[in-house]
Design a binder for these strands. Structure first.
Length: 876
RNA sequence: GCCCGCGUGGUGGAAUGGUAGACACAGGGGACUUAAAAUCCCCAGGCCGAAAGGCCGUGCCGGUUCGAGUCCGGCCGCGGGUACCA
C-alpha cells in the first residue's frame, strides 16, 4: 500500500492550508452529523414512496474484505440516491452468523462458536461503520440471535402444520475413520479433509422442505422477474429443469419375489425402438433385492456407494455397469429381450431410478454399449446433409444427437419418416405409446426437495422431539426458542470429538415429550444455514416483532426494490428465498405480493485475487498468505504455484484487507475506488495500485471547489452557458449511470465534469452552481467529501437530504454533429454538419470531401448509406 | 461431466449493430522549484513514415450485414454454480 499519507502533505502558505483535504476529520465530522440528524432511520411514511435496498448480508468471518466494500458501497449508492429522490428508504444490515467456520475455528484453536461469532460481528461492525454507509443500524440482527432463530423455529412449525416439511432418507458423505458426516466442502478428491480416507455414502433420516411442490410455479414466475438478470433466470430455469417424457414399465422376464416390472422415465420416447439395455440405480429396490444373494453385485453396489455425493463427482466418475443376468421384454415386441444392468451413473433421486439406453442417440449410452458389447441401432439419421458426413454409430460413428427441431429421417420412429427431432417427436411418441397402452406422458422436474438437516452444533435447532410412544412431536410454540446449549451440561463443548456435541449433551438432548410428557429426546440436527438467509429480508421489515413478521410492516416495506449480491447465489439462495416467501405467504406471514420478494436483482462480480498454493504429501492443496511468499518461494525454499485469479475467501488465504485503505486515505477514497473502473457485474482482480491516485483526485476536487467558494469573478455569458451545458450533461449521465448500475461509467463522467469545471472560464455564480451539482452527483459515492463541499459552498442543510438535481433536456443536445464518413466500411473522413441537415445534403458534402474523393479514386459509388446523426458509408 | 458467464492497449476499462480504445492507472516529455514533493500542460494501441497518410488490430476459426468488440455457428482459455462453503 502507498507510503503516501494525507497528513504528510506539507503546509505551504495560506492557499495550501485552504485546499488541504483531510479525510479523517471530514469523515468523522459528517458521520456524527448524520447520526445526530437520524436521517438513515427507516420510517413508514404516508406521503413518500418507499424504497427497500438490500445487499446480501455478510457471513461474520471477522474481517471485511474488498468484496464486502464493493457490495455495500453499491447498495449505499442506490440507498443514498433514493433518499435524494424523495423516498422513504429501508437499508438494513445483519449477519448470516451460523455455519461451519465457527465450528472449525473452535476445532482449530479452542473457544466457543458463539463467542467467536459475536466477537467477529463486533469486529466487522467496527470495520464497516467508518465506511459511512447509510444503514439503519437500529434494525441490525444476527441469525444466531435466539430472537431470530426462535422465530425461524416458529416458521418451521407452521410449515410442518401445512405439510411443507417432511422426513425421508437421504445420503450424506460419511467419513468412516472420523465417524462423522462431512460437508461437500470437506470432501477433497473423494477423501475426508482430516482423515484422508475415501468417504462413503450413508443414508440418514432427514428433514426436507417440499420445494418441489412449487416447481411449476417457481418456473413460471421467472418470466415476471423482468428486473432480474436474464442469466440468473436461465440458470434457475435449467436448475428446476422441467422435462416432458414418457413413464412406462418394462416387464421382467424372471424377476425375484414380487419384482415383475421396471418402471422407467424417458425424455426420449422417440428412441424407444433403439433401446438396447435397461439400467437401474445401485439404490433401486431391485438392485438392493438382488444384492442379497449375489455377492459380486453386492460388492459392485458397495463400490458405487463409495465416493462423494456431489453431482460433479457422480458425473465425472467412470461409467460402470453390472450385468444382473435378468432381462426385460420390449413393450412393442414380446420376443425382444433387453439385458438389465446396474449402473453407477443412474440416480435414484431423479425419475424412477431406472432408464433404458439407446446407444445410437446418446453418447453416454453409446460408450456403455461399446464397453459391454451391446447392440447399437440407429433410430433416425440426418434428413439432408452432405454425402458421407454421417457415420452411423453402429459403424463406429459418434452418437447422433441432432439439435432440437432439426428435421431428421426416422427409420424406427412412430410418426412417419421425416419428422422434427425434439419436442414434436417426443409428443408424437408419447401419443403413440399412450394409444398402444405403453405408459403415459408425464412432466417431471429436476428440482429436488431441499434437505435442511445438518448434523452440526452451530445452527438453528430443529424444534421437534422424538417420543417412543408419540413419534415425532413438534415443540410447543410457547417453548420457543429451543435455545442452543452453551456447554455440554457443565463441561465446555468439545469439538475435538467427532460428531455433533448436541448428540451427546446429557440434559439438553433428554427432555419431556411435549405431547405425553414421557421421557423423550430432542432432535439434535440443526438447520441448513440457507434457511437462515431465506427470510432475513422479511425480518428486517420488523426485526422486533413477536411473530416472524408483522403484517403491516411487511405490507409497507416489501418487496425488496433492489437486491444486490454475488452471482454465486444465483441458484440456491435465491431459489430457496423464493420458496420461503411462498411458504410464508401460505402461513400468513407475508402478503401475497411478496411471494416474489425481490423486485430487482443485481448480481455483482466478485473481487478476485491471486492465491499462493503448494501441495501437501497427500497431494492436497495448501494455501499461503502473500507475506509468506517471496519471489515465488516459501521461507524454506518450497516453490509456490501462483494461481492468478480466484474468489477471495479466507480458506484460500487471498483476502485483501480494505481497512488499510480506509485508514490511509479515508472511506470516500475506498468507496470511489471500488466503484470506479470496473463494471459492477464483472469480476475484478484486486490490485493495490490506484487507491493513492483516487485520493489525489478527491483532494483535487476539494481544492477546486474550495477555490470556487472563494471566487468572485464576474459572469461570462458564453462560458457560463458552456458550463451549464456540461453540468446538465453530467446530471443526465450520472443519473443514468446510477440507475443502471453503471457506476464506473458515472464516475468517468464525473471526472470529465470535474475537468470541465477546473478549466472553465465561467463566472463565480455559474461555477458555484456547477460545483454544488458536482457535490450532489458525487454524494452517493463520496458522501463525506460531498457534505464538506456542500457546506463550503453554502448549501442548505445536508447534501444527503438535498433533492437530486434534474437535467434540463433543452441543454443536452448540440446544434451540430460530427459525422464519420466511411468508404466500404473504413473511416476516411469526418464532417461537421447541422444536426437536422437532410440526407441528400449530407450525401453531397460527404462525396465532395477531399479524402473521400481520393479514396474513391474515380469509382462510382453503388450505394450511399446515411444514418442521420451517426455515420455515412459510401459503398463502391 | 452438466448449466451459466467472461475474454478489448503495459494495466483497469469505454463503446443503443455505426469514428474501437472514452475516463483513469502506470509510463514518457515539458512548466513551476535551488532541489524534491505537490500542482499544471502535452504525448501515448501496434507496425511503416519526417509529416501527410497507410496497413494491421477487440482470445481463435468461420458466417450474417453497407458496416460486427457487439448478432449467429464452432473451438480455446478463465471464472461461478453443481443441491452439506456461505
Amino acid at each position: 500500500m502507498g507510503a503516501y499519507h494525507p497528513l504528510e502533505i506539507e503546509e505551504q502558505g495560506a492557499e495550501r492550508v485552504m485546499s488541504r483535504y483531510s479525510a479523517a476529520d471530514i469523515e468523522a465530522k459528517w458521520q456524527v452529523a448524520w447520526n445526530e440528524a437520524g436521517i438513515f432511520r427507516a420510517e413508514r411514511s404516508q406521503d413518500k414512496p418507499k424504497y427497500y435496498v438490500l445487499e446480501m448480508f455478510p457471513y461474520p468471518s471477522g474481517r471485511i474484505h474488498m468484496g464486502h466494500v464493493r457490495n455495500y458501497t453499491m447498495g449505499d449508492v442506490i440507498a443514498r440516491y433514493r433518499l435524494a429522490t424523495g423516498h422513504s428508504v429501508l437499508h438494513p444490515m445483519g449477519w448470516d452468523a451460523f455455519g461451519m467456520p465457527a465450528e472449525n475455528a473452535a476445532m482449530a484453536s479452542g473457544g466457543h462458536p458463539k463467542d467467536w461469532t459475536y466477537g467477529n460481528i463486533a469486529d466487522m461492525r467496527g470495520q464497516m461503520k467508518p465506511l459511512g454507509l447509510s444503514i439503519d443500524w437500529s434494525r441490525e440482527f444476527a441469525t444466531c440471535d435466539p430472537e431470530y432463530y426462535g422465530q425461524q423455529q416458529a416458521l418451521f412449525l407452521d410449515f410442518l402444520e401445512k405439510g411443507l416439511v417432511y422426513r425421508k432418507n437421504a445420503v450424506v458423505n460419511w467419513d468412516p475413520v472420523d465417524m462423522t458426516v462431512l460437508a461437500n466442502e470437506q470432501v477433497i478428491d473423494g477423501k475426508g479433509w482430516r482423515s484422508g480416507v475415501e468417504v462413503e455414502k450413508r443414508e440418514l433420516t432427514q428433514w426436507f422442505f417440499k420445494i418441489s411442490e412449487f416447481s411449476e410455479d417457481l418456473l413460471e414466475a421467472l418470466d415476471g422477474l423482468e428486473n432480474w438478470p436474464a442469466k440468473v433466470r436461465l440458470m434457475q430455469e435449467n436448475w428446476i429443469g422441467r422435462s416432458r417424457g414418457l413413464q412406462f414399465a418394462f416387464s421382467l422376464v424372471d424377476g425375484p419375489d414380487g419384482h415383475d416390472r421396471i418402471e422407467v422415465y424417458t425424455t426420449r420416447p422417440d428412441t424407444l425402438r433403439g433401446a438396447s439395455f435397461v439400467g437401474i440405480s445401485p439404490d433401486h429396490p431391485l438392485a438392493k433385492r438382488l444384492e442379497r444373494d449375489n455377492a459380486e453385485l453386492a460388492a459392485f453396489n458397495a463400490e458405487c456407494r463409495k465416493g462423494a455425493t456431489t453431482e460433479e463427482a457422480l458425473e465425472k466418475a467412470e461409467k460402470k455397469g453390472f450385468d444382473t443376468g435378468l432381462t426385460v421384454r420390449h413393450p412393442f415386441d414380446n420376443d425382444w429381450e433387453l439385458p438389465v444392468y446396474v449402473a453407477n451413473f443412474i440416480l435414484m433421486d431423479y425419475g424412477t431410478g431406472a432408464i433404458f439406453g439407446c446407444p445410437a442417440h446418446d453418447q453416454r449410452d453409446l460408450e456403455f454399449a461399446r464397453k459391454y458389447d451391446l447392440p447399437v441401432a440407429t433410430v433416425f439419421g440426418p434428413a439432408t446433409g452432405e454425402e458421407g458426413t454421417f457415420i452411423p454409430p453402429e459403424e463406429g460413428g459418434p452418437a447422433y444427437v441432432p439439435p432440437k427441431s432439426e428435421t431428421v429421417n426416422y427409420i424406427r420412429g412412430f410418426a412417419g419418416q421425416q419428422a422434427q427431432s425434439g419436442d414434436e417427436a417426443v409428443e408424437a411418441a408419447v401419443d403413440f405409446c399412450e394409444a398402444n397402452g405403453v405408459g403415459q406422458g408425464v412432466t417431471k422436474y429436476r428440482l429436488r426437495d431441499w434437505g435442511l438437516s445438518r448434523q452440526r452444533y452451530w445452527g438453528c435447532p430443529i424444534p421437534v422431539v422424538h417420543c417412543e410412544t408419540c413419534g415425532v412431536v413438534p415443540e410447543k410454540k410457547e417453548n420457543l426458542p429451543v435455545e442452543l446449549p452453551y456447554d455440554e451440561g457443565g463441561t465446555p463443548i468439545d469439538f475435538s470429538i467427532p460428531g455433533n456435541p448436541l448428540d451427546r449433551h446429557p440434559t439438553w438432548r433428554d427432555c419431556a415429550c411435549p405431547s405425553c410428557g414421557a421421557d423423550a429426546r430432542r432432535e439434535t440436527d440443526t438447520m441448513d444455514t440457507f434457511v437462515d438467509s431465506s427470510w432475513y429480508f422479511a425480518r428486517f421489515t420488523a426485526p422486533d416483532a413477536e411473530t416472524p413478521t408483522r403484517m403491516e410492516d411487511a405490507e409497507y416495506w416489501m418487496n425488496v426494490d433492489q437486491y444486490i449480491g454475488g452471482i454465486e447465489h444465483a441458484i440456491l439462495h435465491l431459489l430457496y428465498s423464493r420458496f420461503f416467501a411462498r411458504a410464508m405467504h401460505i402461513c400468513g406471514h407475508l402478503p401475497e405480493k411478496a411471494i416474489e420478494p425481490f423486485d430487482a436483482l443485481f448480481t455483482q462480480g466478485m473481487v478476485t485475487h491471486e492465491i499462493y498454493q503448494t501441495k501437501d504429501d497427500k497431494g492436497r492443496p495448501v494455501y499461503h498468505l502473500p507475506e509468506d511468499v517471496t519471489d515465488g518461494k516459501l521461507a524454506d525454499g518450497t516453490p509456490v504455484q501462483i494461481i492468478p485469479s480466484a474468489k477471495m475467501s479466507k480458506s484460500k488465504k487471498n483476502v485483501v484487507d480494505p481497512v488499510n485503505i480506509i485508514e490511509a486515505f479515508g472511506a470516500d477514497t475506498a468507496r470511489w475506488f471500488v466503484l470506479s473502473d470496473s463494471p459492477p457485474e464483472r469480476d475484478v482482480e484486486w490490485t493495490a495500485a490506484g487507491a493513492e491516485a483516487t485520493y489525489k483526485h478527491l483532494a483535487r476536487v476539494y481544492r477546486i471547489v474550495s477555490e470556487i467558494a472563494e471566487d468572485t469573478s464576474p459572469a461570462n455569458a458564453s462560458e457560463d452557458e458552456a458550463l451549464a451545458k456540461d453540468m446538465h450533461r453530467a446530471i443526465h449521465d450520472v443519473t443514468g449511470g446510477v440507475e443502471s448500475f453503471g457506476f464506473n461509467a458515472a464516475i468517468a463522467k464525473l471526472y470529465g465534469f470535474t475537468n470541465a469545471l477546473a478549466r472553465s472560464g465561467a463566472g463565480a455564480e455559474a461555477k458555484k452552481a456547477a460545483a454544488k451539482v458536482l457535490a450532489q452527483l458525487m454524494s452517493p459515492m463520496t458522501p463525506h467529501l460531498s457534505e464538506e463541499l456542500w457546506s463550503v459552498l453554502g448549501g442548505e442543510g445536508l447534501v444527503a437530504q438535498a433533492p437530486w438535481p434534474v437535467a434540463d433536456e433543452a441543454l443536452l443536445t448540440d446544434d451540430s454533429v460530427t459525422l464519420p464518413i466511411q468508404v466500404n466500411g473504413k473511416r476516411r473522413a469526418e464532417i461537421s454538419v447541422p444536426k437536422d441537415m437532410d440526407k441528400a445534403e449530407v450525401e453531397k458534402i460527404a462525396l465532395s470531401h477531399e479524402a473521400v474523393v481520393r479514396s474513391l479514386d474515380g469509382a462510382q459509388p453503388k450505394k450511399i448509406i446515411v444514418v442521420p446523426g451517426r455515420i455515412v458509408n459510401v459503398v463502391v
